[in-house]
Nucleic acid binder design. Structure first.
Length: 431
RNA sequence: GGAGGGGUACCCGAGUGGCCAAAGGGAGCAGACUGUAAAUCUGCCGGCGCAGCCUACGGAGGUUCGAAUCCUCCCCCCUCCA
């Protein structure tokens, strides 16, 4: 093993495609001089983070890997206000209880990517300092530093000035600026990162720090990541790809990544894995169906990062059993832990449901079964699916929509494998 | 508060008494072609064992043999005036 080359976090982020805007290029020099405390805010607006939050999460992980100290800030306080940036309508304001519950879930998930062990990353909740704020004091100490004229000029508000912006949302920028100042003062945080829609809020924080402390702080924003098709990251036909394994199984998660558009593979390997850049460049040079190897690696690594190695291997085995093995040359992307040759067939990662043996002794119409396991939303849909030739049992195409599925379909593994179309599998465990 | 415009399926959007389960587009699903990619082409796209029935055009009533379409009241959104 050769020694790890000295890397600059800024360069890492830059070459991997994380940087859209920087408030001041000096940040590169400052990062080179020593460990820096940096922070990114996460809104606890849902019970889980999703793939769309992966860019900031990976950025924090890179910071940690390069010897810096990341702060993940849960916006428990600001979520009570609602950030108007980049939104055309007012966001639903969450209740205190919802925010608290979501903040807890968020904490658990972030710890898959970042180590909060002693001396590592820090997880803070801005409710801790925002809630005790006193309105009059806040206006006198913080509010006086803000120019309404300048705030109105901010891109994040301009759009909303047309549709309407109410006072509570208008204050969001002050609170986020206050967060940055608070973290600067109490945690020595010099750098805030965030999505490009956060630019105005980040700059406001830097200004506030300059005014109160007379010191310089920095900001980096990430590009908005969309797929080659122009869709948002992590949003699919079937819904959001969550990071919580209970909401999106590791198998679905793996499948999401393995279905990446050709044009996105190299970019996604840079953003969503830790594999070295030279290996990624090599993978990106592949053409046509060869790119599928790179997609497997992407899927495996992305799944490994959020769900762990075991889950990733199980998802890989399920993919290999249903879609066939693609042997990988050991010399191809050697840093990846992806299995490279045949392992035992294993479908355990495929979503499943337990059904009683009697059901199949009696026999059940295929379309009914497809609807019952939720492969189809209604019986009508299941019926159409099968009539159009998209229904399979154990990889045999069903001809009649009401074909009886019986005990003879149960495999020696005690399962029935249903398939919808080319790639949606469902496993019935017969007990 | 006054005047006007509007609320149609997942989204956009046509329809202004029967031919409307509602044009067209997008999204989605399936099939063909492929590489678990994209593009393209074809079919499907409210529910129900489906030549029939049920539910649906903001909500509640009403007129009519028949209403998304006409009338009344209510709710919501937008524009202009105050």
């Amino acid at each position: 093993m050769k020694a790890q080359p000295v890397t600059n976090l800024y360069d890492v982020l830059k070459t991997r495609g994380f940087i859209e805007q920087v408030t001041d290029e000096d940040i590169r020099r400052i990062i080179a001089e020593g460990p820096v405390v940096c922070y990114i805010g996460f809104d606890p607006t849902a019970t889980s983070l999703h793939v769309g939050s992966l860019v900031p999460i990976m950025a924090l992980a890179h910071a940690q890997r390069n010897g810096h100290r990341p702060i993940a800030l849960v916006g428990g306080g600001t979520a009570l206000i609602g950030d108007p940036s980049g939104k055309t309508e007012m966001r639903q304001i969450l209740s205190l209880d919802q925010v608290r519950a979501n903040a807890g879930a968020l904490k658990r998930q972030l710890s898959n990517h970042i180590s909060f062990e002693k001396g590592g990353a820090v997880l803070l909740n801005n409710a801790d300092w925002l809630e005790p704020l006193n309105y009059i004091e806040f206006l006198r100490d913080i509010g006086r530093h803000f120019s309404v004229n300048r705030m109105l000029a901010a891109e994040s508000y301009r759009m909303r000035l047309e549709t309407g912006l109410n006072f509570i949302e208008f204050n969001y920028m002050l609170l986020q600026a206050y967060d940055f100042w608070y973290l600067f003062r109490h945690h020595g945080c010099l750098l805030q990162m965030g999505g490009n829609d956060q630019w105005g809020n980040i700059v406001a924080g830097i200004d506030l720090i300059r005014r109160i402390e007379g010191k310089q702080a920095y900001g980096i924003t990430f590009p908005l990541i969309t797929t080659a098709l122009g869709t948002k990251m992590g949003k699919t036909e079937r819904g959001t790809i969550w990071l919580d394994g209970a909401l999106t199984t590791p198998h679905e998660y793996y499948q999401y990544w393995v279905n990446t558009d050709d044009a996105d593979v190299e970019r996604f390997l840079r953003l969503f894995t830790f594999l070295p850049m030279d290996e990624i460049a090599e993978a990106g040079a592949l053409r046509g169906s060869e790119l599928n190897m790179a997609k497997s690696v992407l899927a495996f690594e992305a799944t490994r990062i959020t769900h762990g190695e075991d889950a990733a291997r199980a998802a890989w085995r399920a993919a290999v059993t249903t879609f066939g093995l693609r042997p990988l040359d050991p010399a191809f992307m050697p840093s990846s832990h992806i299995p490279r040759q045949k392992e035992e067939a294993d479908t355990s990662a495929i979503p499943s449901m337990i059904k009683r043996r009697e059901v199949f002794e009696r026999g059940i119409a295929a379309f009914e079964l497809f609807q019952e396991v939720n492969l189809c939303a209604s019986r009508g849909e299941a019926r159409r699916l099968i009539e159009q030739g998209g229904g399979y049992v154990n990889d045999y195409q069903i001809r009649l929509f009401d074909e009886k599925i019986g005990i003879e379909h149960v495999t020696d593994r005690g399962e029935i494998l249903l398939r919808k179309g080319k790639k949606t599998y469902f496993r019935i465990i017969v007990k």
